[in-house]
Design a protein around this nucleic acid. Structure first.
Lengths: 201, 201
DNA sequence: CAAAAAGTAAACTCACCAGTGTAGAATTGA
DNA sequence: TCAATTCTACACTGGTGAGTTTACTTTTTG
């Protein structure tokens, strides 16, 4: 059985995610978080020295789950389309996860107000997204593709997916795309992408 | 010359947009708005009965500027591609407008926390996006197109544009797309769209 | 020019909230 | 079982902020 202390901490984090998401950083009070976590306020402060620290702990976990999502290895021997499709499926699995969306919403809300924070995290993010960028760079050699700017192409690929499966969910509370539609959407995204960057048929 | 009262009100709205954008709804104080507007706090309350009312006034103006943006008339005689391109250009002009982006950012921040508000406004929004949906519906008869679900197709068209010219600007403070790249982007969007919904070459 | 309308500064109420201090109760681990 | 750790309730500080009140000045308008 997990220790009491650990359970309390988990309850705090869980409550914090919920409250932050509902009310934003500014609108959330430590009292409210403590109450929802069924924990005394003092206990919250025993685990996290400040509201800011609690928030950053949560941000960290978004970051980590996004990290573990995609590992892409370019294979020059194989056709482009199926490889792209795997990449798309990986990203769809990530953004389709309800927990990831919930956490993202907390972060995105703060991004809007803090472009500087957005920039900072975006840089780290981009290094990760750059696993895709790197893929694009290598792929640009492939005879089936015409990629000028690998970073731009990568961004566009992400954009195509997020336009359907991320932004509407984040901003308008839309439902996640059901798993059984991932295949179809991935295929569509690849078609669109290749209509611009693909060579010939 | 405009009346003093009107000038004061304009200053208040202007300051409010700025402050709301920087700090969000919760993080903005009426004192700060009054100060930035060079107006006494009481004057703010003479024009707007509450902070909420002031916010909604601003939301209203976003709504109105989005409204005046697109009027599309389907022409069965003409080719699809140039018509789509006009639609894309209209939307690019809207989302490329710095003022519109600034206001959108304020709204979007609240959307994240208030899915109910998002839903409400989204319904009205959708009626407008539905000017595009209607276009899609009529266009689905066109021999050059294969459109199953007009609403979905319309959403996808919007998504293609916003993925490049709206979301990155809203969330990460990226620069607006320069006007001289609109043509090129519109063309790319149409290519992508037609790669999925177009018939033959 | 005089009354009505709108603006002003400043003090005030009332509520909320981040973070601390304390004294005691429950949990843990040796 | 006993000492260290952790949790709890509760009161407290210092600060901020929405909205009001008041006594007064400026602008508008007939």
């Amino acid at each position: 059985m997990t220790t009491l202390s650990a359970r309390k901490k988990a309850a705090i984090v869980d409550a914090a995610i919920d409250i932050f998401q509902k009310n934003g950083f500014q609108g959330s009070s430590m009292d409210a978080i403590a109450q929802q976590a069924q924990v005394s306020k003092r206990t919250v402060y025993n685990h996290f020295p400040s509201k800011q620290a609690l928030f950053e702990h949560i941000a960290q976990s978004v970051w980590e789950s996004a990290n573990q999502a995609t590992v892409a290895q370019f294979d020059a021997q194989q056709n482009i389309e199926p490889q792209l499709r795997v990449l798309a499926m990986q990203e769809l699995a990530l953004v389709g996860d309800a927990g990831f969306l919930r956490l993202s919403r907390v972060l995105m809300a703060e991004f809007i107000h803090e472009p500087s924070m957005a920039q900072a995290i975006l840089e780290r993010f981009n290094k990760e997204e750059s696993s895709l960028t790197q893929w694009m760079q290598k792929a640009s050699q492939h005879p089936q593709l015409t990629i000028g700017d690998a970073e731009q192409a990568g961004g566009q690929f992400h954009g195509l997916i997020k336009a359907q499966a991320f932004w509407p969910q984040i901003m308008f509370g839309q439902e996640s795309i059901p798993t059984d539609q991932h295949e179809q959407l991935a295929k569509q995204v690849c078609t669109m992408f290749l209509s611009v960057y693909g060579k010939g048929k």
